[in-house]
């Protein structure tokens, strides 16, 4: 069969979830040791929010089962078929293309005096928006 079922097991998800928490902790610790407690607090709140969101999304996707009626849910659940994978690949290609352009524009902005951390944050948000937008758009078109 062309699209064997391959779901992301609970164990693997928990390992990934734990790794995410550890990464957030390490990042927070690095900022504290670097004498930037405010940044550490921001990283902690942001990191925990993202990992918590991942947990909620995983729970919702799992509750709907492997026949979840959405490519995004199936992607998170690890039960994608070939069309889902094609959509994800194309979406990531858009992210890559956007990253080239955004980095060039960001570099120019920093050279003109923009705050570097703000530019990096804006690029990150832009790339996430492009990924979600491209996924939705391609899901409807393909």
């Amino acid at each position: 069969m062309s699209t064997p079922e391959r779901s992301l097991s609970d164990g693997r998800f928990l390992v990934a979830f734990a790794c995410g928490l550890v990464a957030v902790g390490i990042l927070c610790l690095v900022f504290v040791l670097a004498g930037q407690p405010d940044t550490a607090a921001g990283a902690l709140v942001g990191g925990l929010a993202v990992t918590g969101l991942a947990l909620v999304v995983r729970w919702r996707a799992k509750r709907r089962g492997p026949t979840a009626d959405g490519g995004f849910s199936r992607t998170l659940l690890g039960t994608t078929d070939e069309r889902d994978k094609a959509i994800l690949t194309a979406s990531l290609a858009w992210v890559g293309l956007t990253a080239f352009l955004a980095n060039a524009i960001g570099l120019a902005a920093v050279a003109l005096g923009a705050d570097g951390s703000t530019v990096i944050g804006a690029i990150e948000a832009l790339l996430i928006a492009v990924l979600v937008g491209a996924f939705v758009w391609l899901s409807r078109r393909t």
């Binding site: 069969m1 062309s2 699209t3 026949t67 490519g71 078929d81 070939e82 889902d84 078109r141």
Partner: peptide, 28 residues
């Protein structure tokens, strides 16, 4: 879709000509 091991959306896209299947799926 269940018989072929793909999502319902994939079958719908195939039927509407929006998605061309891989060779293995076409054989399936």
């Amino acid at each position: 879709a269940e018989a072929l091991g793909v999502s319902r959306q994939t079958v719908n896209s195939l039927e509407n000509g929006r998605y061309d299947p891989s060779l293995p799926l076409a054989f399936a």
